[in-house]
Design a protein around this nucleic acid. Structure first.
Lengths: 347, 347
DNA sequence: GTCTATCGTGGAAGCGCATTCCTACGGAGA
DNA sequence: TCTCCGTAGGAATGCGCTTCCACGATAGAC
């Protein structure tokens, strides 16, 4: 019943087999405004089925003047932070007849611009920029420019993280979360803090440090800038930053790593140096990466609903048509106290 | 200098501004076989730049009869196993002018078929199926059928995991790795094993169990089928399976979980029941997920170079044109002994 | 000096589809 | 019986691009 013609089956093939015109076949398969008689419609559907017809999406896109492609650009898809967001996007996209094209910048922010150009070439309906904004004027300027062009072409841009761009944005409340965490940690009795701060130019990292300092300040606790160590936003970055801090560990009773993977790196550094957590030192992270929930001791952290972040971004994409001005959705974190910190009594 | 015309800039706009024909503009921008005079070429490039021209990929695809889109279908992008593979694919794709479209089946194998149809509609050059094959004839049959159609349309299919389909395949040596692991564990002195086995229909899980049993057998150790507990291929699956096994823990000295995330779940179950690893029980996983390398105690496992798996799959995609028959690339795992197992002395 | 390759350029066809416009047909109302 | 309108189906157009083909000009060979 199902023969296999050479190459792709076109709508013309279907029409011919059903004995109708191209127009009728098109209408039968897509249910346009126009009606098609039941008998003919059946014939067309049967023909399409038996020929394994799959409409050429490129041709449809041309004829219709729009596509069903959405771009998702992340820094590193292997990082659980981004893969969780991606999972949220994919789940939200489910059943919406949308294809998601993935871009991975490999942590080179300037590649965001390249992807934006490529996705504009694809006539993407929208693109979700999931990475942290950077404090880097030339790159930011180029990005801003390319976003203008992209939107001028009719595309929609959604950013995740900071409200730095004039586009729909899912704002992650890093500052607030870090502030709350600081408050909680002070509440546990900690007073002398070190911070593993991540790259200075990365706004996510910077916001978390600022928020943390702010939270401490409100509780009347000072944060010595010399005890804020910068490093990569990765496990190894955390390991190295913690190693640096080890010299001065006598002055500390708690360390805040600006994300969970760094905290895990720090945990290893401590363990290797015979430091027990939380007995000798408290340790806190940020994100509540689910893969990392079972490390021992369990990490005190700020839970971020990352899948929800992705899903929210996708909803912004879908509802882009009705908007008039850039919208903002705020996602809050929630402090989760676990075993990597404990109550200490101030002497 | 850079005006912003309404809507998209077309090649015609560029040609008009440069004062050349469409054909010349096309050749200048894409360097076809024909040459274009230097002065004209410069004029065209300048025009394109000043208009922010980005070629309509859909139109190019139509005209050329091929696209630069590759599909990647995974079970769950949030799972570190798949996100590592995805990272490998993305990295290999870097610089190859290829856009990767992501499909996430949310662990429903039948959705692979849906994605295959959608990607055929996109006229994808190729699709990488990254998930484990299942022992499920109806679904497998549908998949096989759709793959035929996909390939008949000129697309290439690459599978990752088992050589179950007549397509290019990156075979992961699950069986061999599990066999080696078994040998190593027996070498450490373990004799009485339990297995957290994952879903019965999932070939990856099944191969690992078979290989493990095989390896034990070669060392003259028997595996009691009653001590092989099935469960989901996830952290929670491992937790639950281990909980089941807890009743009979007196009969065991070592447990093999068929992947790392299950092993972590099992580790938590043990901890909650006051069982120390490795003092009371040895524990081993499979995959060597990098995010999980820092759990404590560190997990004995079989290291799989997952990024390399992704990269290899992508290489098969790229070199698909020259092939005549399906190719196979084998990726071996390597046993890594860590603290979750230790040498035990047989009484 | 003419004749034939060679090369740069432009014209135009066509990729597969949605959609607009047009035609033919049938039923209802006069 | 005749006209009018609503409707279903078909022909034709165009989306933006690549590429085949034709054309004129230039250069090399005789």
């Amino acid at each position: 019943m199902a023969e296999q013609p050479r190459g792709s089956v076109t709508l013309m093939d279907v029409a011919a087999r059903a004995g109708v015109s191209l127009a009728t076949a098109s209408r039968a398969l897509n249910g346009s405004t126009r009606k098609v008689g039941d008998d003919l419609r059946e014939r067309v559907l049967a023909a399409a089925r038996s020929l394994n017809y799959a409409a050429n999406a490129q041709a449809q896109a041309m004829a219709r003047g729009r596509t069903n492609v959405v771009g998702l650009v992340v820094h590193d898809i292997a990082d659980p932070y981004f893969s969780s967001i991606a999972a949220g996007v994919m789940e939200a996209a489910e059943g919406h007849q949308v294809l998601v094209t993935l871009g991975s910048t490999l942590r080179r922010p300037e590649r965001e611009v390249d992807y934006l150009v490529a996705l504009r070439g694809q006539r993407s309906r929208a693109v979700i920029l999931a990475g942290s904004r950077m404090d880097d004027s030339p790159v930011a300027e180029a990005l801003r420019r390319e976003i203008d062009i992209f939107e001028n072409d009719g595309g929609n841009v959604v950013a995740i993280s900071q409200k730095q761009l004039p586009v729909d944005t899912v704002v992650i409340e890093n500052r607030l979360g870090a502030r709350d965490l600081a408050t909680s940690l002070v509440g546990l009795g900690y007073r002398r803090f070190g911070v593993l701060a991540g790259p200075d130019a990365m706004l996510t990292a910077r916001d978390r440090v600022h928020g943390f300092r702010e939270g401490l300040g409100r509780s009347g606790v000072d944060l010595d800038t010399a005890l804020v160590v910068h490093g990569a936003f990765t496990r190894d970055g955390g390991y190295q930053a913690m190693s640096t801090l080890l010299d001065r560990v006598g002055e500390l009773d708690c360390v805040f790593a600006v994300n969970d993977v760094m905290a895990v790196g720090a945990m290893v550094a401590c363990r290797e140096h015979g430091l027990s957590i939380p007995q000798d030192l408290g340790l806190a992270g940020f994100d509540d990466i689910s893969t990392l929930r079972d490390v021992n001791p369990a990490l005190t952290t700020v839970r971020l609903p990352l899948e929800k972040v992705g899903a929210t971004a996708f909803e912004l994409v879908l509802s882009a048509a009705e908007r008039t001005k850039p919208r903002t959705r705020r996602i809050k974190g929630e402090v989760v106290l676990r075993q990597s910190t404990r109550h200490v009594t101030t002497p």
